[in-house]
Nucleic acid binder design. Sequence first.
DNA 1: CCCAGTTTGTTCTCCTGTTCACAAACTCCT
DNA 2: AGGAGTTTGTGAACAGGAGAACAAACTGGG
Lengths: 224, 224
Amino acid sequence: MERAAVTARTSPESARDIPEATVARLPVYLRALTTLSEQGIGTCSSEDLAVAAGVNSAKLRKDLSYLGSYGTRGVGYDVDYLRYQIAREIGVTQDWPVVIVGIGNLGQALANYSGFRSRGFRVVALLDADPARRDEVVAGLEVRPFDDLERIAHEHSVAIGVIATPALAAQDVADRMVACGITSILNFAPIVLNVPAQVDVRKVDLSIELQILAYHEQRKGATA
Amino acid sequence: MERAAVTARTSPESARDIPEATVARLPVYLRALTTLSEQGIGTCSSEDLAVAAGVNSAKLRKDLSYLGSYGTRGVGYDVDYLRYQIAREIGVTQDWPVVIVGIGNLGQALANYSGFRSRGFRVVALLDADPARRDEVVAGLEVRPFDDLERIAHEHSVAIGVIATPALAAQDVADRMVACGITSILNFAPIVLNVPAQVDVRKVDLSIELQILAYHEQRKGATA
DNA sequence: CCCAGTTTGTTCTCCTGTTCACAAACTCCT
DNA sequence: AGGAGTTTGTGAACAGGAGAACAAACTGGG
């Protein structure tokens, strides 16, 4: 949703471009495969994996077919092999440096979230505009002034930024991020960000999710 | 996505059922209208609102048309009137009691998030299984033992629950919630929840969002 | 080697969602 | 009153995703 126009590419390898809906599910498959692997399961059918990922098995097979033919008919998929292939396709076999701006409650929660580290992301800096937060240590990292963004972004070649500031500050932060060469932004502030077309933005809005639930809840009550 | 089968309804009023994609955008429109209203703007065109919400104006008009005809041709929409109509349709003109389970970093961030209160949600209890957290006060609420869930859920007629626990505990929490009559769950744990069909689950997974960004980021790099 | 059983990869159909384009309905100016 | 200009609401075309269903490809047993 809300993707910037996908420029037609004909790169030598991995030429196929994967539908957006599929891309959004690949991380779910990856997580399910990791769980299976930890349970010592070496092979699984599309049905097994589909159940673990909470999707339809036909959809799963179609999704995987965009990556290539990594299964064996009559047998299924090798869990670790498929896991690697998906990780490679997503791009999480390498490590992505990430900066988090806005170290309030949410920013701290994100900084402490171990799921990032284990999934190919490394938080290289925590930034906050509030001088009162300076020198605080969160998740083993010192909170730095927002103005350090340029230096840190270049130093670590940061391509991905997370915005966890109040709504009022978010657009400014986004502008500065874009100016530093950051081209992917994960935005938690409840505001529509204005960025150039080549920059990807994904938003997570907690109250929107609740409102969607409320809508359906209201409907349930209407007939009960 | 992942909706339980929508039972065909022919309720007397608000009989039309609104497409899921539209439901997901209504809260965005609501937020944009609130911003416009705070700026003292009394009337806006679909184009104005579409820009504020970050969507196509045709899509916006079609979305609104599912609610009814609340605009005036040649003029536009009355901001406050439309805002009320959308709020009513979503169901946030009433107050929804919410419980949050798992008062770690993320749970605290959620408890402190003012956006809930201002958008029709009231956090009535914070629950945590860890006895060490007992008696802690977060966002003006005492953290209570998880076993109080039944009592609190019934006392406040809670229909919506938020899970902010580690992955391992999440399924148990969900089961208990369902047993208490909670029929809408917002899940932050990185796991696929298993719930009866009549229960709505929405999931927010931080690392999945980052992985989607990483995929596109990798593609950008491939041609640059 | 052949056959029964299993599971993938893919085609085809259906359905949902998006966008264009325009008639209908309104305002305002002359 | 009439006409020019504006903006909504919606019909119709288009795009994209979901799921059923099946042929192709594998395993293992006799």
